[in-house]
C-alpha cells in the first residue's frame, strides 16, 4: 500500500482520515473515541491510583499489599458479625437475668426468646425431634407439640431437661429412670391379660382380673394404680392417647418384655445458658407448654449460678 508519507489522506465516502495501517487492502480509519469516553477513562486512571494506595491491590507471595485504610473483606465480615452480636447483647443480658419461670411475664422478651430458641432448635434439636418438633413414634423421639410430658412441661422442667439431659452418662443430676425388662417373667396368657388391662386404662380394651392383678403387683408402683404415670420418676402415663413406642398389642408387649428407653444428651457446656433458656421457651411455646406452679416439686435449678 502506498502510504503518502506525512501527507494526510482522507477516505472520501466518510470524510475520515486514514491511520495508515493496511491489511490486504483493508485500511483503518482514524475514528477517535468520543471525548466523554476518553475523559471517563482518564478519571478511572486517577481513581485507580487512589484505590491502590487506599485498598489492598498488588498480589504478593503471601497476601496482597495492604492499603493504608487497612480494609480487608475478612475484617469487614468480623466487624459485621461483631455488630450483630452487639445488637443482641441487651436481649441476652435481660434473658440471663430473668428466672425462666418469670419469662412469660415479659411478653416482648418471651417473643425474642422464642424466636432465638426456634433458630437454635433448627441447629441442635431437629436431628431427633424433627423440624416441626413432632418427634418420631417409631424411633421413640417424643413429640414436643403435644401436652404429654414424661418429665414435666413447664418452663423450668423443660430447661432442666435441656441442661442435664436424660440418662446422660456422667451427669449426676441427669433425669434417669429404668423400667425393668419382664422377659421370661410372665406366661403368654398372663402377658395377654396384662396388655389388655394396660389398653383398658385408656379405654382401648377390656380389663380383666388377671391383668389387673399383675399390673398392681408389678407396674402400679411407678405407673400408678390407674396408669397416671409419675413425672418425678419419668414413668409415662398409660391412660392417655399418646404412646411414644406405639399402641398396638405387639408394641406394648415388646415394651414390657424388653423396654427401650431413650436418651437425650445434656446441653450444659455445649450451649450457653441463655441459648438453653431460649430453647426451653421455644419448646414451651409449641402448644403443649404448661404453666409453672410454685408448689410443683420440680428439681431445683439454680438459674443465676449458670450465668
Amino acid at each position: 500500500m502506498a502510504n503518502k508519507g506525512t501527507q494526510k489522506r482522507v477516505d472520501e465516502p466518510t470524510g475520515t482520515e486514514f491511520v495508515g495501517h493496511e491489511w490486504d487492502g483493508i485500511e483503518e480509519l482514524d475514528t477517535p473515541m468520543p471525548r466523554w469516553w476518553v475523559w471517563t477513562f482518564y478519571l478511572t486512571i486517577i481513581f485507580s491510583v487512589g484505590y491502590v494506595i487506599a485498598y489492598p491491590a498488588w498480589p504478593m507471595f503471601e497476601r496482597a499489599t495492604e492499603g493504608v485504610l487497612g480494609w480487608s473483606s475478612r475484617g469487614q465480615l468480623a466487624e459485621e458479625i461483631d455488630a450483630a452480636d452487639q445488637a443482641r447483647v441487651s436481649v441476652r443480658e435481660a434473658l440471663a437475668r430473668v428466672p425462666i419461670e418469670r419469662l412469660p411475664d415479659d411478653s416482648a422478651l418471651m417473643q425474642q426468646a422464642v424466636a432465638g430458641g426456634a433458630a437454635a432448635f433448627r441447629v441442635n434439636c431437629v436431628q431427633c425431634h424433627g423440624s416441626g418438633a413432632a418427634g418420631s413414634q417409631e424411633l421413640g423421639y417424643p413429640n414436643l407439640n403435644d401436652d404429654a410430658w414424661l418429665w414435666g412441661g413447664d418452663l423450668r422442667a423443660i430447661e432442666y431437661t435441656l441442661v442435664h439431659g436424660i440418662r446422660q452418662v456422667g451427669d449426676d443430676e441427669t433425669r434417669t429412670s429404668l423400667m425393668p425388662p419382664f422377659a421370661g417373667v410372665f406366661e403368654s396368657a398372663q402377658m395377654d391379660a396384662l396388655v389388655s388391662h394396660v389398653l383398658s386404662l385408656s379405654g382401648k380394651g377390656q380389663t380383666n382380673p388377671v391383668g389387673a392383678q399383675i399390673y398392681s403387683d408389678n407396674c402400679a408402683a411407678c405407673h400408678g394404680p390407674s396408669g397416671e404415670g409419675d413425672r418425678e420418676l419419668g414413668a409415662p402415663r398409660l391412660n392417655d392417647a399418646i404412646w411414644l413406642r406405639g399402641s398396638s398389642r405387639e408394641a406394648i408387649t415388646r415394651q414390657i418384655l424388653n423396654p427401650r428407653m431413650g436418651m437425650m444428651p445434656k446441653w450444659e457446656g455445649r450451649l450457653d445458658p441463655v441459648t438453653i433458656k431460649m430453647l426451653a421457651a421455644y419448646v414451651h411455646s409449641l402448644g403443649g407448654g404448661e404453666d409453672f406452679v410454685e408448689v410443683a416439686e420440680d428439681p431445683e435449678v439454680e438459674v443465676d449460678e449458670q450465668t
Partner: peptide, 14 residues
C-alpha cells in the same frame, strides 16, 4: 404443615 396435626393426651386432635 409440619406436623399437620397433633394427637393430644385425651385423644382429641389439634
Amino acid at each position: 404443615r409440619n406436623p399437620p396435626f397433633m394427637l393430644m393426651s385425651d385423644g382429641s386432635v389439634r
